[in-house]
Design a protein around this nucleic acid. Structure first.
Lengths: 301, 301
DNA sequence: GTGATTGTTTGTTAAAAGTGTACGGTCTTT
DNA sequence: AAAGACCGTACACTTTTAACAAACAATCAC
């Protein structure tokens, strides 16, 4: 094809035909009649065919003009609908929201929020992929990823949802057997490492200004946090786990927090999205909802 | 509606999606990749939605982008077809050609040419309205009018097809009764006026440098040339008629030309078309054909 | 690492789109 | 018939946009 024809002029032409007058077309379009006259003239020059026969008092369609006008209406209607659809998406969450989240936080927190989200926004469907693998956001077409812990790469943008405390926990039987007055005492405990962390064996305990860093040798390693939790229950050792995961069990006495007056570094829960110019409303709406703890399951503070 | 969205940008967007790359889209469109990048960015700004997720190495469609792309293709295809249709019309005569012509010339000359024209251009239909009334070209949507005689108004454009001599004729009986040595002798003849002329009673005869203008009082008036011819045949008087109308009858001896060494002013046969920017090809083709006398019926010189 | 590829940014220029005024025609009004 | 209201266009002018070229940041392949 040679030179593309200016599609915008179609709107001018259509307006003239619809209103039957250059002047009224100009009013409708909110421009001077000069512009309408010129644009239509250029459209005619582009296609090399006269579309309108003008007298000083009225305008009549050419045969060619009549043919174009019919198609013109179809084109403009299609375009209008297309843009209206997009505007809707910018006004109200809709479409499909693809989320990936890690096992623990995904199952415990994200899934319930997703349920509430789909209830609130019926036009929005959600695909939740729960995995501890760090999938490629763009390649897999995710709108959103929830990352627990620390952000490593990040050419992507992130928003912090929450921070969580991490607790060293063991099952009651194990906790009874081994006394632990300070961090160093833990070195002799069997340790369950969570491989989904950057450095699973390195932990820094704090108590006020006091700080103690130790490298623990794992008795076992797993790459999924729930598996680590299960291992703790089975008495395989102690592990460092997010508070939101174990709070309920501690309250019920099924797990024992170790060194309660020492604290471990807090982790961050982040919403990570690929860098696009405009964030889809559905993403913002969901992240807003996820950030509001009132939407979280009740057993979490 | 607020501000119209730039439809031209759709082509850029579609090209990126189709080729899967800004660079290749730029090549296809014959512009710099800068332009493609900017135009797509502005389209996104217009609709307030991201359509593409860009990495430095690749481009991926957003959900919203996917929706727009589908419609985009439909819009661009429709536009392409519409313009192609118009271009065809500019390349080959097609559609309907509405012509009006006066009774005499229309029936004798135009109609046969129309027949040949439709045979040569099968995609072109012709509506021939034969009447001596001077119809409104624009209001009645005529592409072309054939006017015989002299052009009076003409905000319209005209092209001369031919000139024709006019002859004063009578039937043999009348011509025998009245001798006519010079123009002034005709003043005593009964005269049949043709009201379709501007000034039906005013005639100027010429013989070399000699000139004689006379105002003839009509014995009868009609507004149609064939009717005048019939009246002449019936011996109602003499009349001034176009040569193409009476040549055959004179040759057959059924009509007698008066004052054969004097000449009357020649009339013009004109093709008149409404003033449009671009003349449809069908009009040009027809006028060309009508101007070429080889297409005329054989009994005319 | 190094170079090649890709999309964006930045400055700059030419071409559009747009405005206001004036003009030739035509229809209505008186 | 003359006056006035309209209509579409032409013209001079300002503002916005499209387009290019060159440089840049980020990635992938080798």
């Amino acid at each position: 094809m040679a030179e593309p024809i200016n599609l915008n002029r179609l709107a001018y032409f259509a307006a003239v035909v619809d209103t039957g007058s250059f002047t009224r077309a100009a009013e409708r379009l909110g421009v001077t009649k000069t512009v309408v006259s010129q644009q239509v003239a250029r459209l005619e020059a582009d296609v090399g065919v006269s579309l309108l026969t003008r007298t000083t008092r009225s305008v009549q369609l050419t045969e060619a003009g009549r043919g174009l006008h019919a198609r013109c209406l179809a084109i403009l209607k299609e375009a209008d609908e297309a843009f209206a659809e997009l505007s809707d998406a910018a006004l109200e969450p809709r479409g499909t929201l693809r989320i990936t989240a890690p096992n623990d936080f995904g199952s415990f927190i994200v899934a319930p929020v997703v349920a509430a989200f789909t209830r609130r926004h019926p036009k929005c469907r959600v695909e939740l992929v729960i995995t501890d693998a760090k999938l490629d956001l763009i390649g897999q077409q995710f709108d959103l990823a929830i990352r627990v812990g620390w952000l490593d790469d990040s050419s992507a943008l992130a928003r912090r949802i929450d921070t969580f405390r991490q607790l060293a926990v063991a099952n009651p039987a194990l906790a009874e057997r081994h006394p632990a007055a300070g961090p160093d005492d833990l070195l002799v405990w069997p340790f369950i490492a969570n491989l989904s962390l950057k450095d699973p064996g390195l932990w820094t305990f704090r108590r006020g200004a006091e700080e103690r860093t130790l490298r623990v040798q794992p008795a076992m390693s797993v790459n999924a946090t729930p598996a680590a939790l299960a291992a703790v229950h089975a008495g395989g050792g102690f592990a460092v786990l997010p508070e939101f995961l174990v709070a309920e069990e501690i309250a019920a006495g099924r797990l024992i927090p170790l060194l309660p007056d020492w604290s471990l570094p807090s982790g961050g829960i982040h919403a990570v999205y690929p860098a696009t110019r405009f964030r889809p409303l559905k993403v913002k709406a969901f992240v807003d909802m996820l950030s509001d703890k009132r939407n979280w399951p009740t057993h979490c503070p």
